[in-house]
């Protein structure tokens, strides 16, 4: 029998949940097709087919869906509502399956299980089970696939937390003691935290290759994924009001953590027309005013963001940090 093919768009929440779905579906004997990383044609087709008022990451999601349509039997678009107490997904994500269905007329069937842990039908296990039933009649195999893939998902997550790359203070790069030439100052690595949604930080097409550019400019890049969730949780308690959106919690908690833990600068990535970011950005900005020793800036991404604008901002931000250090250490020009 021909293997069924399920397409997964490489965008939005799948930056977090792809491993779980991939393993679950594979265990059911389904072939999983992940769309290619965002490129020009994905972005262009996404922009053409989506609503104009929607944020860029959702437009990109449309592009990924379209790139899969001809290759697969189903496309997986879970309706992510709630995965923890007191926090939700953004309304655009909650409505994602409906939005895609209504805007893209000729499209293969969409599988959209509801993940809403407040409801009995919406727990992870029930959602996975519903999906499994669409693909096979063997309920025993489904249950087995659920427990194994869930277990591995958790296990990998814990392993990821034990990874030395996950932040301990030691992964900050310390400066050399005696630096006395301008060139050495310019080449000394500095620690910059880049915070924001994973789908902006990890999508090098949308963020115009920001992470690579920073690395090329001798920056030790730190991301929210490198902060232990326990730390994130602890930091979030300091806020006057809890953060309402699950996907923003990590970014804010990590930003607060980095403000206190020795980075020289923090860059907050946001997408134009993102409702979450407009609120979350304020609370990070608020914190930055309490920590003037950490430089802070915000980069806004949109479909027509030019590369020149982002380059100028990166260079000016790094210059600001490096010149400040150099001049404080009396390596000022002679005149």
């Amino acid at each position: 029998m021909k293997k069924k093919k399920v397409g997964i768009p490489y965008a939005l929440y799948f930056y977090e949940y792809y491993p779980l779905w991939k393993e679950f579906l594979t265990r059911l004997g389904v072939e999983v097709v992940l769309s290619r990383p965002t490129n020009k044609s994905i972005l262009d087709s996404g922009i053409r087919s989506s609503l104009s008022e929607i944020c860029l990451p959702v437009k990109v999601f449309y592009g990924h869906v379209l790139s899969l349509v001809d290759q697969v039997d189903y496309i997986l678009i879970p309706r992510m509502v709630c995965i923890e107490k007191g926090a939700f997904f953004c309304p655009k994500i909650i409505g994602l399956p409906d939005m895609v269905k209504s805007s893209l007329s000729s499209i293969c069937p969409i599988i959209s299980p509801v993940v809403d842990v407040r409801k009995s039908y919406g727990t992870w296990k029930n959602s996975l089970f519903q999906v499994g039933q669409l693909l096979t009649e063997n309920t025993l195999a489904i249950s087995r696939a659920i427990s194994l893939s869930w277990e591995n998902f958790q296990k990998n997550y814990v392993a990821h937390l034990l990874d030395p790359k996950v932040l301990r203070p030691a992964s900050l790069i310390e400066g050399q003691d005696s630096i006395n030439s301008k060139r050495q100052w310019e080449e000394k690595p500095i620690n910059i935290a880049v915070v924001g949604h994973d789908y902006l930080i990890d999508d090098s097409y949308i963020n115009l290759n920001l992470i690579e550019k920073l690395k090329r400019m001798k920056v030790n890049v730190l991301t929210p994924g490198m902060v232990h969730p326990a730390m994130v949780k602890k930091q979030l308690k300091k806020l006057y009001k809890p953060i309402f959106w699950s996907l923003s919690r990590k970014a804010v908690g990590a930003a607060l953590y980095y403000f206190e833990n020795g980075v020289e600068g923090i860059i907050h990535l946001t997408s134009f027309e993102c409702g979450e970011d407009s609120m979350v950005g304020e609370s990070i900005h608020h914190q930055s005013q309490k920590c003037p020793e950490v430089s802070y800036t915000e980069f806004v991404f949109d479909e027509h963001t030019g590369e020149a604008g982002i380059n100028t901002r990166i260079e000016a931000f790094l210059d600001m940090i490096r010149r400040k250090k150099r001049i404080e250490n009396s390596l000022a020009p002679s005149w």
Binding site: F272, P292, V300, D302, T312, F317, D319, R323, K324, I327
Partner: peptide, 21 residues
């Protein structure tokens, strides 16, 4: 085509912003 604000303190830049969209 663009406008900027630069904030300085003790002879160094401490903050800046450029127009976005």
């Amino acid at each position: 085509q663009d406008s900027k604000i630069i904030i300085l303190q003790n002879g160094v830049v401490v903050d800046f912003a450029m127009n976005t969209i």
